[in-house]
Design a binder for these strands. Sequence first.
DNA 1: TATACTGTATATATCTTTATACACAGTATA
DNA 2: TATACTGTGTATAAAGATATATACAGTATA
Lengths: 132, 132
Amino acid sequence: MWIPIQLNEQSAEPMYHQIEVQLRALIVSGQLAEGTLLPSIRELAQTLKCSVITIRRVYQDLENEGLLRTKQGTGTYVAKVGDEMRDIHRRSSVIEALEAAVDAGVRVRCSDEEMMEMLRDILQRRRNANGT
Amino acid sequence: MWIPIQLNEQSAEPMYHQIEVQLRALIVSGQLAEGTLLPSIRELAQTLKCSVITIRRVYQDLENEGLLRTKQGTGTYVAKVGDEMRDIHRRSSVIEALEAAVDAGVRVRCSDEEMMEMLRDILQRRRNANGT
DNA sequence: TATACTGTATATATCTTTATACACAGTATA
DNA sequence: TATACTGTGTATAAAGATATATACAGTATA
């Protein structure tokens, strides 16, 4: 009943958002299986040293996205997400971010080749950093 | 003395930020040459239907980045930016956005190839959309 | 049915972001 | 030097984001 979420206190990114992003990724990438019972809002709040209301917000947001299913008095579970839906969710977060990058590129007159090369470089650099 | 800036009223993105992003791109991509006299803060404020203070903030932010040079009583000019500096500025906005996309990809276990393909698709789709 | 868990709803505190008004100060020039 | 432009500094309004406490309501089960 423990889930791997790490909060970065230094970051300007708000707690609720850090939690949402990480929990969404865990569900959508299949690391948390359908039907898994999540920690109660009080338990997770204690673990992450924040208020119950903050966790509540996260669970509610993800339920509105169809990723969680919640039942008062019982708990909050990972919802059944069709394979198609899961892949859409999974890819859309990445695609949205890439679209933003392309917007930035267009504004400064980056060629398509230049952008592809930039991405290649970034991926390569990370692979090396991890391999060390 | 007119510069092509378009505000999207619908967007949640604040005015000052929309203006900054577009003006920065114009300078850094060389579309506004060094020494160009920009519209006065009052003139641009009137054009964009916002307060003088909002424009002032934009000019000040970009001056702090070294992209503008301003002289009280005279006006605000595009600063001299070394070719290297310009290219760093130009590329960094795109690279930052791409890094964010890669972060998103890593979280949902996207392979490198998958990400490259996503970017290729987006670029292709845009090329077709514009070609029409 | 008592109790010890679940989630829920309302109301509010705090901080940050965004945008503004208005009085002030420098510069050019008729 | 009057005036009509430039940018500047201070102070503040308004809205939104973030996080919270506290009282309430449903569920399981000893």
